[in-house]
Amino acid sequence: MTFELFLQHLANGISLGSLYALIAIGYTMVYGILRLINFAHGDVVMLGAYAAFYGAALFLLPWYIAFPLAIIITAALGVIIERIAYKPLREYPRINLFTAAVAVSFLIENLGIVIFGGRPFAFTRPEFMDVNLSFGKTSIISYTFIIIITAGILFAILLYLVNKTKAGMAMRALSKDIETTGLVGVNTDRIIMFTFALGSALAAAGGILWATKFPQINPLMGVMPGLKAFIAAVLGGIGNIPGAMIGGFLLGISEILIVAFLPSLSGYRDAFAFAILILLLLFRPNGIMGEVQAEKV
């Protein structure tokens, strides 16, 4: 493999990784607070992509209006899902919450099939994302970089929100101890809404960028990215936001590079993520950045 080709794969891996990371953050934030594997999160990714698609294709909005609008709409949908399906179950056994997430996931996917139709749509990239950039012998289409840059900006905004704003700090406190934080006057409900809004917004951004990278959208497009992103979240130590980012990049880059170096294994690509996950869990059961939580006896 030439160095140029390697760089091309690496760029590709980083851009895929940043997509996983964007989606993984929503998983990890929700898990941190509610201890819920929100399996519907992948479908929120799909909603984001469709919202952007309809905005651009049906309402002919320019991308700089359609995309942010899609993110806002998806964030609102994320909050609505939490209100309707998860909030009433907060005090109940976690299997109920999990099953609610499964039901919501089925609901969104199949509503997607009913409303959007089962056939895939072609997603048109904005022109500036379709520029062919040449670097010596390599050429990379501009969306690869735009995905990475956008994700980087979003990560920076997120880290600012989580570390410097009141809501963000309350969110982190909540993920440490939901009961006590509620007692000291933090409005738990609002922070949970904030978390879902933030997570869904990032998922929507991930979905839109995903659609620019793989420009075909269908109602089940969120399933695999969602699952991979969840793995990334677990890899990084679920509940830990920087961990989710690291996990996402790790997963994206290794997936692309393994297939690049061992093309005969490309059929097993989806199995790598799980294999990495299982190996990591066996040696570091709490993920890369996860804290060891000893059960109090």
């Binding site: 179950l89 099953t99 039901a103 089925f106 996917e109 199949n110 509503l111 099939i113």
Partner: peptide, 20 residues
């Protein structure tokens, strides 16, 4: 297509929310 699963998932959600 998909309508049946929409109804199933609504029903599932209903059972979980109201017959916990």
């Amino acid at each position: 297509p998909g309508m049946r699963m929409v109804i199933f998932s609504l029903l599932l959600l209903f059972v979980i929310l109201f017959y916990r």
